[in-house]
Design a protein around this nucleic acid. Structure first.
Lengths: 145, 145
DNA sequence: ATATTAGTTGCGACAATTTGCAATAACCAA
DNA sequence: TTGGTTATTGCAAATTGTCGCAACTAATAT
């Protein structure tokens, strides 16, 4: 269990939201499945114990937990999204378009970029969990261009 | 008309592709609709003149013209994509999560970032038309956080 | 002009995700 | 513990985007 259930529940209730069995099941599933979990994978896991839990609830809950910064959403190269438990420090991803593997970047790599956008464009960039796409060392030779 | 039809047609034919009425209609529609056009908006426009033109063709053609670098694909904040006629120089976007407006950034802002990823991680970042999300000057006050 | 051939299209089915709405149940107060 | 309020769920339908395949047609050579 890589998340503090009691702490999370308190946060949700304080913000006026409810702690439901569905939300706990879905969070546990993401947690158990590890990094870059697809909505469908979550659905498959939770439905084993709770067949009545609907797909719509999975999607809505993943969004909700992301808004609450309990989960983080990661863009994959095919346009779909995956989720992971949000650590204390946000980080970024280099996602390979060919093999879908990824590297994690420290949050700091975008610090100066963010400051520049701030001062030059008055635009506040959301720099948590940005995905960059391209080709990893193994795939760049075969990928052409 | 912000694109050179004859030049584009020549490029396509030289690469072994065909210039079809559907492709021309779709390109004209993107052109006419301006920047950040959704696939559905394109579909609605072209079907007025050519009701038989299918949704699948719109999606396939937008992808195709993007691969040919005649169009550029832009990620919007809700995860969907929009298209625009690709200028000679690629550029990036700062997209506001609240009002969906956007600012354009010169291609050069990511040059050093790209070089850093290259040398530190052996990862070749695709830096054409990257979208960053956040809040523009008008929306940041009301957006909280 | 006509035939050839291979790139494209349209259709229908499918997969992925979102949304409206009525029923349910978490939370809080009494 | 009970009741009221309202956030949340489940269902089903609607959206959005993809895919396989047979029919079609743009481009080229004859």
């Amino acid at each position: 269990m890589s998340h503090n259930t009691a702490e999370i529940n308190r946060r949700l209730r304080e913000a006026g939201y409810r702690v439901t069995p569905q939300r706990q099941l879905i969070l546990d599933a993401v947690c158990k499945l590890g990094k870059h979990v697809s909505p469908d994978a979550v659905y498959e896991v939770v439905r084993r114990n709770t067949p009545s839990l609907s797909r719509a609830t999975v999607y809505r809950t993943l969004h909700f937990l992301t808004e609450q910064r309990i989960l983080a959403m990661v863009q994959m190269s095919d346009g779909r999204v995956a989720y992971e438990v949000a650590g204390p420090e946000p980080h970024h991803h280099l996602v390979c378009r060919t093999c879908d593997s990824y590297l994690e970047l420290p949050h700091s790599v975008l610090r100066t970029f963010r400051q520049r956008m701030e001062s030059q464009y008055d635009f506040e960039v959301d720099v948590s969990h940005v995905s960059f796409f391209g080709h990893c060392n193994d795939c760049r030779d075969t990928a052409g261009a």
